[in-house]
Simulated assay, not measured.
Amino acid sequence: MVPLATTEGTLVASINRGLKAIYASGGAISVLHKDAMTRAPIVRFGSAVRATQLMLFVEDPLNFDTLAAVFNRSSRFAKLQKIQCQIAGRNLYIRFACSTGDAMGMNMISKGVQYVLEYLQNDFPDMEVIGISGNFCSDKKAAAVNWIQGRGKSVVCEAIIKEEVVRKVLKTNMDSLAGLNVNKNLIGSAMAGTVGGFNAHASNIVSALFIATGQDPAQNVESSHCITQIESAQNGKAIYIAVSMPCIEVGTIGGGTQLASQSACLNLLGVKGANRESPGANARQLARIVAGAVLAGEVSLLAAIDTDQLMTSHMKYNRSSRDVIQLASTE
């Protein structure tokens, strides 16, 4: 079961059909290959020379263990993984990446960054901190740095769907479905100049799941970065479908996860709260669930478009003959 908070009835029906197709073909497999929240403060010096000196110091592998020790003192769960810099004139943007346990981790990483900045000012007293976030993070914005390097959880979810299932459940054929994916999700998105938008409607599913499970809805922007692939498989007897999502930003503790309804949805999924035996495991599992739901939504919507059922489905499931306002006023 996948909890969704949405006013779009067709979305629920579509994901249900996609899940049915995947289940009937043996299920899906997901892999989480990166787990690191990021924060990038902006600091300024009197000259580009001094900014470069700090950049070289921060990125020197010989200094990483010292900086990591300072950063990691800020939390039991915060573990610094990487520091990357970009310079613009006398401004330096320092992108910190760290694991954050089962929390989404924005507050956690910001605290660790503050510790490091205070430490660096001992050796660089002329460093001026302009802001704890310099938009090189990049939070709640479509950004190439997130699309390429990832932010939060990076997940790939894949499935093999049999030809019979494509025909009977999705009501289309494999060649047509794969062709539509190329022409719409890949070429069409390239024509639009998208960043991370090589998909049919990943944000639909991400938003509905985020609201249902108490995530930050605004982080749907980068969490919906996704590329959908559909290819022939098993000598033409099935299709291979995959979604690659490098920026799923989720947590199972803190924030909206503590609300009653959202907490119940997390409990339904078996990922409520912190995993005490394996810190971070619950949040990672939630990210995999998000990717799996997106996989189902992608294959179903593409099938609906391919068979010209998109409009009729919306008319059927998104319209009601009942006057909800009038019903509410009479109860």
Rank of each mutant, 00 (worst) to 15 (best):
P125L: 14
P125F: 07
M127K: 12
M127H: 13
E128I: 07
V129P: 08
I130T: 00
I132H: 06
G134A: 10
N135L: 02
K140G: 08
K141I: 01
A142K: 03
A144M: 11
R151Q: 07
R151I: 12
E158I: 09
E158H: 12
I161H: 04
K162V: 05
E163F: 04
E164R: 05
E164G: 00
V166P: 09
K168C: 03
L170G: 01
K171Y: 09
M174T: 01
S176T: 08
L177P: 08
L180D: 03
L180M: 15
N181K: 12
N181A: 11
N181I: 11
N181F: 08
V182F: 10
V182L: 14
N183A: 15
K184N: 06
L186P: 06
S189Y: 02
A190F: 15
M191Q: 11
A192D: 05
V195Y: 05
V195K: 03
G197E: 01
G197V: 01
F198M: 04
N199Q: 10
A200T: 09
A202F: 08
A202C: 14
S203L: 05
S203R: 07
I205Q: 04
I205C: 12
V206L: 02
V206N: 00
L209Y: 11
L209T: 05
F210N: 03
I211F: 01
T213K: 06
G214P: 00
G214A: 06
G214D: 05
Q215A: 14
D216H: 13
A218T: 13
A218F: 15
N220H: 12
N220D: 01
V221H: 07
S223R: 07
H225G: 00
I227G: 01
I227D: 13
I227H: 08
T228C: 14
Q229S: 03
S232E: 14
A233N: 15
G236P: 10
A238F: 13
Y240R: 14
A242D: 04
S244V: 14
M245P: 00
P246A: 02
C247Y: 15
I248N: 04
E249D: 07
